[in-house]
Design a binder for these strands. Structure first.
Length: 511
RNA sequence: GGACGGGUAGCUCAGUCGGUAGAGCAUCGGACUUUUAAUCCGGUGGCCGCGGGUUCGAGUCCCGCCCCGUUCACCA
């Protein structure tokens, strides 16, 4: 097959033009040459003796043992992707990288033979190869595999990103994360930290006796949060389902059923705005603990989150986007209304009249609209005037009951609920409360939400009859907590955008 | 949805007052047996996001649209 035939038959997409196709055509021609000499450009297996990082470590430890007069060396078979190539006539240096490390490979005509050397011309940056030979240092001190042979493991047909500046186009980075990872390997570290963080959290929960459960993603009635859901359809049942906005109601049904400590780490979906702190699908950890209240849970939350952050950042102080955080001491705790008094200098606790509260909020520089009720006004003042001050880890607690239809009323003040939220680096990272287990009060709260919904609030919650039945069967007193995993991942990786901590963030489709 | 910024070669980016589209890297050809952002010589590569308009002439000015980012609104 000629080059012309190849490009005629195998043009991948019309969107590719000019140089891009030209580059691909060169690689297709190399692929064809490899095949024509009886080699397979897509191998099935390669027997590695070491990961690259292991080989580097091994040489370094041999160097420690050996005297300076005996340069250490050992045989190895390594594999990886070619990330750089420097050709000097009859010798070539390539850099190969595997998941964790990079190493230089020396390919000399004398060492691998004229024929094999000639075939190195069919290698490109991006190809996977396996190489074998002796690992030692070059005269300039670079750890190098001096190759006695190599084989191509997988041919790459696409040009790579620029070697020095890497890939900067955020749209390509987010839409084609694999290109981002190839060009910017430090991206892998961000996701390793996210993975480790979740693992630390999971082990902490398991060590405290919590059971990890899985509850439905497809909900006949969306519940557990005030949020607009995604709607989908099941063919066999010919019925509408919602992608869950929260697992809360199912997890509480498990407390009814007899489990006492459960948690779930999984996805939630909300059909709302997308920005640097919100992705349509995001991950939460929700935990529920029987015979516990919100104050006990606050202690546990502090212990868990501090432990998580310390484990991942390896220190009690670190910075998030220029903000210096100190997690070495106990968290700040203040009631929501005390915080509003402190930071907005107004008293909303003793001014519950809607219009009075609105006037006070406006006097504190918060924009208030007519559709906002008292609860919403409090929430607004909190976000605008309090939250930006909560750099150090802080709990706000005791929220007006209007804001929390699933939370238990405060034991000595029915206007409030026993609810708290943890804030870190001014980010709201969770939500927790003493769980409402009074089925009659819960029904009244649901009915208030239904009234809001009928008045046009499409984020108001639905009445979930089966959940009410469960509460009537009986749920033990309990406290529950939700943690935004993506937000915590942003904090421990110092990432400015939620898209930096989600492998495949949602962008507008069809581009 | 609003405001602001951006979209030029595969990648990273220049592009002046409206006058033939540029560089580096990558790629192709040549030289080169210890380079490491290798070096040197030569070449290929462009729907300047898309569509209109103004103009003798538009990457550049005007209008509309698309996508991305930041921010506001909403939310975790």
């Amino acid at each position: 097959m000629t080059e012309h035939d190849l490009q005629g038959e195998e043009t991948p997409q019309q969107s590719e033009t000019g140089a891009e196709q030209e580059l691909r055509r060169h690689r297709l021609a190399k692929l064809e040459r490899i095949r024509q000499r009886g080699d397979e450009p897509y191998k099935y297996i390669f027997d590695r003796s070491h990961a690259i990082a292991e080989a580097r470590t091994e040489l370094e430890s041999l160097e420690k043992e050996a005297g300076e007069d005996v340069p250490p060396a050992f045989e190895a078979r390594l594999a990886g992707r070619i990330v750089a190539r420097r050709i000097q006539g009859k010798s070539t240096f390539i850099d190969i990288r595997d998941e964790n490390a990079r190493i230089q490979v020396f390919l000399g005509e004398k060492q691998i033979g004229a024929e094999a050397y000639e075939h190195t011309k069919d290698l490109d940056i991006g190809d996977f190869i396996g190489v074998w030979g002796s690992v030692k240092r070059t005269r300039r001190g670079e750890i190098t595999l001096f190759s006695e042979g190599y084989e191509i493991l997988a041919k790459s047909l696409r040009p790579s990103a620029e070697k020095y500046h890497g890939l900067a186009d955020v749209e390509i980075r987010y839409r084609h994360r694999y290109l981002d990872m190839v060009a910017n390997p430090e991206v892998l570290d961000v996701f390793r930290k996210r993975i480790d963080m979740i693992e630390v959290m999971r082990s902490w929960l398991r060590s405290k006796g919590f059971l990890e459960v899985e509850t439905p993603m497809l909900h006949p009635i969306p519940g557990g949060a005030t949020a607009r859901p995604f709607i989908t359809h099941h063919n066999t049942y010919d019925s509408q389902f919602y992608l869950r906005v929260a697992p809360e109601l199912y997890l509480k049904k498990l407390l009814v059923g007899g489990f006492e400590k459960v948690f779930e780490i999984n996805r939630c979906f909300r059909n709302e705005g997308v920005d640097g702190r919100h992705n349509p699908e995001f991950t939460t950890m929700e935990m529920y603990e029987a015979y516990q209240d919100y104050m006990g849970l606050m202690d546990e939350t502090e212990e868990m989150l501090t432990h998580m952050m310390k484990s991942i950042v390896g220190s009690t102080t670190f910075s998030y986007q220029g903000k210096e955080l100190d997690i070495g001491q106990s968290w700040n705790r203040m009631t929501l209304f005390d915080a509003i008094r402190q930071y907005a200098d107004i008293d909303l606790e003793n001014n519950k009249d809607r219009d009075t509260a609105a006037k006070l909020a406006e006097s504190a520089g918060v924009e208030i609209t007519l559709d906002m009720g008292y609860g919403k006004i409090v929430d607004e003042v909190m976000s605008e005037r309090v939250q930006p001050n909560l750099v150090q880890p802080t709990f706000l607690y005791d929220y007006p009951w209007e804001l929390s239809p699933l939370a238990k009323r405060k034991r000595d003040n029915p206007e409030l609920t026993e609810r708290f939220q943890p804030f870190i680096a001014c980010l709201e990272v969770g939500n927790a409360f003493s769980e409402l287990n009074d089925p009659l009060d819960q029904r009244a709260r649901f009915e208030a939400q239904v009234a809001l919904r009928e008045a046009g609030d499409d984020e108001a919650q639905f009445l979930d009859e089966d959940f009410l039945t469960a509460l009537e069967v009986g749920m033990p007193p309990a406290a529950g907590l939700g943690i935004g995993i993506d937000r915590m991942a942003m904090i421990v990786t110092d990432s400015p955008s939620i898209r930096d901590v989600i492998l495949f963030p949602q962008l507008r489709p069809g581009v």
